[in-house]
Nucleic acid binder design. Structure first.
Length: 276
DNA sequence: CGGGACGCCTGTGAGC
DNA sequence: TGCTCACAGGCGTCCC
């Protein structure tokens, strides 16, 4: 999926255009990860508020008079959102949810259907609460320091790569950005969390933030499916230094990059630059 | 309890 | 050309 940068790029591309728009109708296509949890017709007449992001989820507040709640969106592994402000093209076979509003037609395209759109009465009410409660810190939260990362790592025996993907210490990095951040920090993805020193945690946090902000600037990564809210592709994948580059020489030391499987996911790394 | 494997789905590219 | 297999950006749930 779309990792945090792709979700953030999507949020940035939609927030101003959707704020204040009124929902005219909603259409559901093939089933996504979970049912919508509300009759689509019940969304009619609600006004869209400020789009927010938590981890890789998007929260769209919806209200009318005393009625309020919102839609929690997740792009899964292959989802993208596009807002058609004029006439929307005919629905494609992978367009599985649509919100027609006074600002245009918002469409979720998701070939693999691991994505989700679900109604919640509030962000801190179920089902949204249940999905968000276990999430780790936002990577750019200033209260999330190297000391905090170090403290969290000391309580974990798993590998640092698995912990980054689990998202219960810090959210936002999926497979691409976890690999890239670990490369930049000089940390082997197989390194044990509880063996990481405070300085190495500090390097990792800085690297993670650098990778994520660079990716947002570049519009995210488009390997295949991801598109921003205007239908455009991201370009970070071209500046990835290890992801998908097994066998190619490391850009720093020319040692062939390696691929190993951890937690059923590929990890790419330089065996010389990244230490356990 | 932490940690790892599974499965949800469809598409693509490699190899035969 | 057509088949089969491995693999793909995530993550909730189950089992040990």
């Amino acid at each position: 999926m779309p990792e945090m940068p792709e979700v953030e790029v999507t949020r940035i591309g939609l927030a101003d255009r959707l704020r204040g728009a009124r929902v005219c109708s909603a259409h559901v296509g093939k089933p996504l990860r979970w049912p919508l949890g509300i009759a689509p017709a019940a969304l009619h007449g609600l006004t869209i508020g400020e789009l927010a992001r938590r981890g890789k989820y998007l929260w769209m507040p919806l209200a009318a008079g005393t009625r309020h709640g919102g839609l929690l969106w997740h792009l899964g592994m292959s989802g993208s959102l596009a807002l058609h402000e004029r006439e929307a093209p005919p629905r494609g076979r992978h367009d599985h949810f649509e919100l027609v509003s006074t600002a245009g037609t918002l469409r979720l395209t998701d070939p693999r259907r691991f994505g989700a759109v679900l109604w919640s009465d509030a962000l801190d009410a179920d089902p949204a609460r249940r999905l968000l409660v276990g999430l780790g810190a936002e990577p750019f939260d200033v209260t999330f320091t190297a000391v905090a990362l170090h403290a969290a790592c000391r309580r974990r025996r798993t590998t640092i790569k698995a912990a980054l993907l689990a998202g219960d210490i810090v959210v936002g990095a999926g497979n691409i950005y976890a690999c890239e951040a670990l490369f930049r920090a000089g940390i082997d993805p197989r390194a044990r969390c509880n063996r990481l020193s405070l300085p190495r945690c500090a390097r990792l946090l800085a690297a993670l933030r650098a990778v994520l902000s660079e990716a947002v600037t570049l519009g995210g990564s488009t390997l295949r499916d991801y598109r921003n809210a205007h239908g455009g592709a991201g370009s970070f994948q071209a500046s990835a230094q290890v992801y998908g580059r097994a066998g190619q020489p490391c850009g720093v030391c020319a040692t062939p990059l390696r691929r190993v499987v951890q937690a059923q996911r590929s990890s790419f790394f330089c065996p010389r630059c990244q230490l356990r």
